[in-house]
Design a protein around this nucleic acid. Structure first.
Lengths: 244, 244
DNA sequence: TATGTCAAAAAAATCGATTATTTTTTAAAG
DNA sequence: CTTTAAAAAATAATCGATTTTTTTGACATA
């Protein structure tokens, strides 16, 4: 019963002390709240805190070694990302997931990203082209799994994959839109990590990435947008099966 | 210097006591945090708290008669709606506005609402048709101004106007999308209320609403979506001039 | 005038304890 | 047995005070 973050050894406090040591470097002074926010966020996205998990203030307080206020604040902040649900008078829990809302998420992502991608292709300048080229290159250099036998996702690949996709959209001309896409991307990752983190499609997604880059550079908006949709539908179908 | 919510007479605490009196009715038990959230939210949207205004915990504490925790929590929650900005170690303030981000907002709204409207028109069922008919009717019955001479916006009209627009989108099949549109709508209202709350276009927007309804019912997706865009661009141009 | 330093004041962040609400348990009644 | 009621335990929400960090302003230096 006394689980929660019990798996974590180090308290946030210790970390903050460690961070404030190297006086010279401009260590971005972060509040306790922000550290906790980041920490819980990662754990939810990586599936360490499963959907529906009750986030009890008292447990968190103990495992993180802090007072209640920064925890409540961090959880309130996490609400924005739809990673945490808050119900008046009965606290916080990790957002639930289900097949239907996954489908909805996928659909919405397609709509928004198609729109943003098209805008980017139509308005993107030289800088944008260079951004997507370099993002693609970096992605291509990271192995997808850190384990050659079984599948164990490489965090670095995850990061670069997201950066590549966001780069494709980055010239859409609306930071609001980008923020939405970013949010939806992270929610999607959570589904992926929650479902079945070991089994993974052998499908060669890098081919698809190559194609996306090419179509974007050639300014073939319609084709590019279609390719993007297919890219998502395919991974989506795979995940749908996993979820239920 | 000691401004903030000083204009408000009643403390939130008193209100909560009043609410908990009528034992029988299922008075939705709201936490202090939620009440404060709602209150500050309204004040920001209605332009009573101007963009950029510093939200000092101590001042809010005094004017609302509560402790610091629920206030910080409410402000953290408001962050989700992009109505409040939070900077580590230096507190909260009402989000800034400027012409550029207004344009961005308008553009993004058009994208999302056009998409959602089209989906609604293509997939909406009988229930949806009835929803938009009734929402339109209600809107048509509310006067836009409560003052016949000068212009003073009628809150009821505001509410119904939003309900009508959201109803048009309500069959799009994605609650995420609806949430985004809702958020963007409120942000837009804030611009409207901030800019120049008295002067207002004599343009007869009710004609445009009639047309939107008709096109939606006739399932003329392309025309409807175009009409919606024009509807927004027009009000947008007007506001742009006001803002700067 | 511009720039830098330091101490005082203000404000933000956090803590530990208290209060209110919900959930669980226990026990009595049907 | 199941349902209901009251008591106990657990948890959420809130408060008031303390600690940290940032901001301000007076004074000194170039």
């Amino acid at each position: 019963m006394n689980d929660d973050l019990s798996e974590l050894s180090s308290s946030v406090n210790q970390e903050s002390q460690r961070e404030s040591k190297p006086a010279g470097a401009n260590t971005t002074a972060t509040s306790l709240t922000s550290q906790i926010y980041q920490r819980i966020r990662d754990m939810i996205i990586h599936g360490e805190l499963p959907p529906g998990h009750k986030l009890k203030i008292e447990n968190l307080r103990k495992s993180l070694g802090t007072g209640a206020s920064p925890i409540r604040e961090a959880l309130s902040l996490l609400t924005s990302d739809h990673l945490v649900e808050r119900i008046d008078q009965r606290g916080f829990r990790v957002s639930h997931i289900n097949l239907e809302s996954f489908r909805e998420l996928l659909k919405t992502r397609c709509w928004l990203e198609q729109c943003a991608f098209r805008e980017s292709i139509e308005h993107g300048d030289d800088e944008w082209e260079e951004r997507i080229v370099i993002a693609h290159h970096r992605l291509s250099r990271a192995p997808r799994s850190i384990d050659d036998n079984g599948f164990r996702i490489n965090t670095e690949w995850e990061t670069r994959h997201k950066l590549f996709h966001m780069a494709l959209l980055s010239a859409c001309g609306s930071s609001i839109m980008l923020k939405f896409c970013d949010q939806l991307y992270d929610q999607n990752i959570r589904y992926r990590n929650t479902a079945e983190p070991t089994a993974y499609p052998k499908r060669n997604s890098s081919k698809e990435h190559d194609q996306l880059l090419k179509l974007a550079l050639d300014r073939k908006a319609d084709d590019a947008v279609n390719a993007l949709e297919k890219h998502y539908i395919r991974t989506g179908d795979f995940l749908s099966k996993q979820i239920e």
